[in-house]
Design a protein around this nucleic acid. Structure first.
Length: 554
RNA sequence: GGCCCGUUGGUGAAGUGGUUCAACACACAUGCCUUUCACGCAUGCAUUCAUGGGUUCAAAUCCCGUACGGGUCACCA
């Protein structure tokens, strides 16, 4: 029995002509140095922070070089199937503005000339490649049961030998064609293994764009390339897909580093050019003094939807990812404030070879700075966009009072040193609620009074202010001078300095008085500029709130 | 256990033999400014680069050992 006959017995319904596919998916016609990358997740329904990071890097590397970035779905494991799992991934990428040039664009649709981009639809292609290997005697069927494999492992452990299906432990490798034939005809289930020609004593060197030069023993394990359900394993799909889709740079998580010798061997077996590899370190999380991989089960911030819910601007997240990816980005961005992320050239060499800690504080800082540079209109748009899905009440309010809300968001903004108190869109309501009567009126108010605490004195200050001093047409200077007059009238220093020089001559200083006016108006001791707030609130509301306070404390 | 990788301050890190080599940023602390807070400004925060040894006139930077951390060893990706 020849190899050809054996291959026909095992895979009767497919051909073994791999050149048809090589011709169907020719080398891409791109400019010199263009990078073709891919994001290849399992259809689990959502993107993990680590994957988002990798896909961000992939997108960036492709874009910088006028290359191609595509989305391939790796669904060769049916046990992992999740309903609408593809759509979830597409949505997450879309939410973070990571666009694809080719690949899946919905649960069933795709774009691009190198598809199908979902592995379950590529079965024939994989099997053709498997059959080709079978015919050339470089692969063989294996009938070992899970128990037999387990037994081999036990023996190897006892003998303190390497674990795996290799050398003399690869018993199915020695099966004669006749034995194979009778097993197949008896209906025994089998898988296909690579007949490894590697020698563990030999070393192979592989260059990784991030990790540098790596040295491993050659692979000598007869790994499974096709499972009993006829679908390929990850390794084999990687070979076939990345070759046929003409991927130039395989950028993936560094859990794949250790299978590099296998992948090298696979490409060599077919005589295909090895793609360049870049293994991205996982994003870590600190917990109880030790670090571990960010886990989607334990860490809410691992799910990409978390940032969407919090209302951290997409661009801020990308800025953060870029600082994680290339440590020199931060300084570059600081020195080139007018430029954007797109102007920055990504460099593999600047990527950290060990896993960095995910620092949410840093992210929030970036977000805070980012929002502070936005125009009031942009802040309005971002906030209402966020509120639309996460805070209906606020959304309606913002929709109803568009111009008013913009003027609120514009306080101490659009100036040289803008205010930085909005960390993300979800925080904005809690920082501005008192500017909206609808929210203010229903709030169960607790006033944060400090040095001046006596309700009677406060009521007196308020009524004096509205009866004697307040005038809505005052300029800021006029307004402030009146505040000083008010302070003096109640025995408080007009200037903080005066008070500091003679603390015994005064009950306090101007700051104490303005604090009273601020708190009685907003309930909060920490607010933006009081004059601006009063201007926006207007006379009617100010009087109403002060009178309410006076009445309530009689 | 085998194989591979890594270890610079609270955090992200710059720096791969010698002109301040421990930059920069976040966080933290103090002070100044200021009608509050925030902003801004100023100052402080690793005498030392996991550790032991070696090479060298000279090492965070090169070599070896040790410790610790991570990854991987599936018909999962």
């Amino acid at each position: 029995m020849t190899n050809k006959e054996l291959a026909d017995l095992l895979l009767p319904n497919v051909g073994s002509d791999i050149t048809q596919y090589e011709n169907k998916y020719p080398k891409r016609n791109l400019k010199e140095g263009a990078i073709v990358t891919r994001f290849a997740p399992s259809p689990t329904g959502f993107v993990h922070m680590g994957s988002l990071f990798a896909s961000f890097v992939e997108r960036k590397a492709a874009k910088d070089s006028d290359g191609v970035f595509y989305l391939r779905i790796e669904d060769t494991d049916q046990k992992r199937e999740v309903e609408n799992g593809v759509q979830g991934i597409i949505n997450d990428l879309k939410n973070f503005d990571i666009s694809i040039d080719e690949g899946m664009i919905s649960e069933t649709e795709e774009i691009g000339a190198y598809g199908p981009y979902i592995q379950s639809k590529r079965k024939d292609i994989y099997q053709t490649f498997v059959k080709y290997l079978l015919e050339s005697g470089k692969a063989y069927p294996c009938f070992c049961s899970a128990e037999e494999i387990e037994d081999i492992r036990l023996i190897q452990e006892k003998r303190k030998q390497r674990i795996g299906y290799y050398g003399r432990y690869a018993k199915c490798r020695k099966l004669t064609p006749e034995e194979i034939k009778s097993k197949v005809e008896a209906g025994e289930s089998y898988i296909i293994r690579l007949k490894s020609m590697g020698n563990f004593e030999n070393k192979v060197r592989i260059h990784d764009l991030i990790k540098g030069d790596l040295e491993f023993p050659e692979n000598d394990i007869d790994v499974v390339i096709m499972k009993s359900d006829g679908l390929p394993t990850y390794h084999f799909a990687h070979l076939v897909d990345d070759y046929l889709m003409r991927t130039t740079h395989v950028i993936r998580g560094d859990e794949w580093v250790s299978s590099l010798p296998l992948h090298l061997q696979l490409f060599q077996t077919f005589g295909f050019k090895l793609p360049k590899y870049a293994h991205v370190s996982p994003i870590m999380k600190e917990e109880n003094g030790s670090r571990r991989k960010l886990s989607k089960r334990k860490d809410p911030e691992a799910a990409v939807s978390y940032y969407h819910e919090k209302g951290i601007p997409v661009d801020a997240v990308k800025l953060y990812l870029m600082t994680l990816a290339n440590s020199n980005f931060e300084q570059w961005y600081d020195a080139n404030k007018d430029k954007t992320l797109d102007d920055f050239k990504f460099d593999f060499k600047k990527m950290s070879s060990s896993g960095g800690l995910f620092d949410i504080e840093k992210l929030m800082n970036i977000s805070k700075n980012y929002i502070s540079r936005l125009s009031a209109v942009k802040v309005y748009e971002g906030t209402i966009n966020w509120a639309k899905t996460y805070d209906k009440e606020f959304y309606l309010l913002l929709e109803q009072h568009r111009d008013y809300a913009i003027s609120v968001f514009n306080i101490e903004r659009e100036q040289k040193k803008p205010r930085k108190d909005f960390g993300c869109y979800s925080e904005i309501k809690s920082q501005t609620w008192y500017m909206f009567d609808e929210l203010y009126d229903k709030e169960n108010k607790t006033y944060e009074f400090q040095t001046i605490n006596d309700k009677e004195e406060i009521a007196e200050i308020l009524s004096t202010y509205i009866n004697k001093y307040y005038d809505e047409v005052d300029t800021k200077d006029e307004w402030f001078n009146k505040m000083k007059d008010l302070a003096a009238e109640f025995g408080y220093a007009r200037e903080v300095r005066e008070y500091k020089e003679n603390p015994n001559s005064y009950k306090g200083h101007i700051g104490d008085i303005s604090l009273v006016l601020r708190i009685a108006l907003t309930t909060k001791s920490m607010t933006p500029d009081l004059y601006d707030i009063m201007q926006i609130l207007g006379k009617e509301r100010i009087f109403k709130r002060y009178n309410q306070f006076i009445e309530g404390n009689k």
